[in-house]
Amino acid sequence: MSEAVTAMQMAEFDGLCRVADAGLQGMIVLRGDLGSDALRSAVQDLTGAGVPKVRRVLSKGTFSVLWMSPDELMILCPYAQADAHVATLAKALEGQQALVANLSDARAVFALTGAGLREVVAKVAPIDMAPGAFGPGDIRRTRFAQVSAAVWMTDDTSARVVCFRSVAEYMFNLLRTAAHPGAGVGFF
C-alpha cells in the first residue's frame, strides 16, 4: 500500500485568514435520483445526516453530506473509511440507477480560518459572501479565479474549499495571495 499524501503536503499560510491544506479527506461522490426513497435511506443509514436541500450541507459525527447538483451529493468521511463506505452505499443501491465512487485522491481540500475568510473568498470568487447571504450550512460551487471549486462554511469563522487535485497548487497560491496581510479591504 502506497503512502497517501495530499497535493500540497500540509502547506499553510497565515494572513487575513489562515489558509491550510486540510489533510487527507475521504470524499465519496454519489450520483442518482436525490428524491428516491432508496437513495435517501441509503444516505440516511450510512451517515445519519440525511440528504441536504439545494445548496446545503448536513453534518453528523464524522460525516458531512454536501449538495453538489440536482443529482449529485458528496459525502465526506474519514479518509481511511471511504472505501468501506463506498461498498456499503453500492450494496444499498444495488439495482438502482446510481453511481458511487471514492474520489478522495482526485480532490484537494483547504481550510480557511479566521474572520477575514469572507473577504479572501469574495476577492477570488463571483459570489456574495455577505454574512446574511452565505453562512454555515450553505455550500456554493463556483470558480475561484480560473478554476472550479466548492466552498462551504463549517462555522462563522471557518470554511472549506475543495478543488481538483491537479489545480491544488494554483488554489493554494491564489488563496495565499488573496490572504496577504497587506491586502485587506475591510468590506465585510
Binding site: V54, P70, P126, R140, R141
Partner: peptide
C-alpha cells in the same frame, strides 16, 4: 433554474 444560483457570466 437547476440550482437557483444567480450566476454571473464567468461562472457559465
Amino acid at each position: 433554474p437547476c440550482c437557483g444560483v444567480k450566476a454571473e457570466e464567468s461562472e457559465l
